[in-house]
Simulated scan of single mutants.
Amino acid sequence: MNDPAKPTREQRLAQRLRDNLHRRKAQSRAMATQDSADATGDTDAGHLPNGAPPR
């Protein structure tokens, strides 16, 4: 029943927190790129990596 290869609840939650942090950092970098592109007038750099238009 206790499979050593199966992560515990705490390990799963810790991994989810790390993944969320990475995702939020990437979003923050994309927003910063968008803000700097808006300031310079560059319209192409404002798009998010997945192709979604900026808000």
Results as ranks from 00 to 15, higher is better:
M1H: 15
N2K: 15
N2S: 12
D3Q: 00
D3I: 06
D3N: 06
D3M: 07
P4I: 05
A5M: 10
A5V: 08
K6E: 09
P7Y: 04
P7E: 01
T8D: 11
R9I: 13
R9C: 15
R9P: 10
R9F: 13
E10W: 06
E10R: 14
E10T: 02
Q11W: 06
Q11H: 04
Q11I: 03
Q11K: 06
Q11E: 14
R12V: 06
R12H: 03
R12G: 03
L13I: 14
L13Y: 12
L13E: 08
A14W: 02
A14G: 09
A14S: 09
A14L: 04
Q15M: 03
Q15W: 03
Q15E: 13
L17E: 11
L17I: 14
L17K: 11
R18Q: 12
R18V: 08
D19A: 08
N20D: 12
N20I: 06
L21A: 13
L21V: 11
L21R: 06
H22W: 06
R23M: 14
R23D: 15
R23L: 13
R23Y: 04
R24H: 09
R24C: 07
R24L: 14
R24Q: 11
K25Q: 14
K25Y: 06
A26M: 11
A26T: 06
A26I: 07
A26S: 06
Q27T: 05
Q27D: 15
Q27H: 03
S28R: 09
S28G: 09
S28I: 00
R29W: 00
R29Q: 15
R29D: 15
R29N: 14
R29P: 07
A30R: 01
A30S: 04
A30V: 00
M31L: 13
M31Q: 13
T33W: 09
T33F: 03
T33P: 05
T33Y: 05
T33A: 14
T33G: 07
Q34M: 11
D35Y: 00
S36W: 00
S36R: 00
D38N: 09
D38M: 07
D38A: 06
A39L: 11
A39M: 07
T40R: 08
G41A: 01
D42V: 00
D42I: 02
D42K: 13
D42R: 08
D42C: 08
T43N: 07
D44M: 12
A45G: 03
A45W: 01
A45L: 15
G46K: 15
G46H: 10
G46Y: 09
H47N: 02
L48A: 04
L48K: 03
L48P: 04
L48I: 02
P49E: 09
P49K: 01
N50S: 05
N50F: 05
N50V: 11
N50T: 09
A52D: 08
P53A: 07
P54C: 02
P54K: 08
P54V: 09
R55K: 10
R55T: 05
R55C: 01
R55L: 03
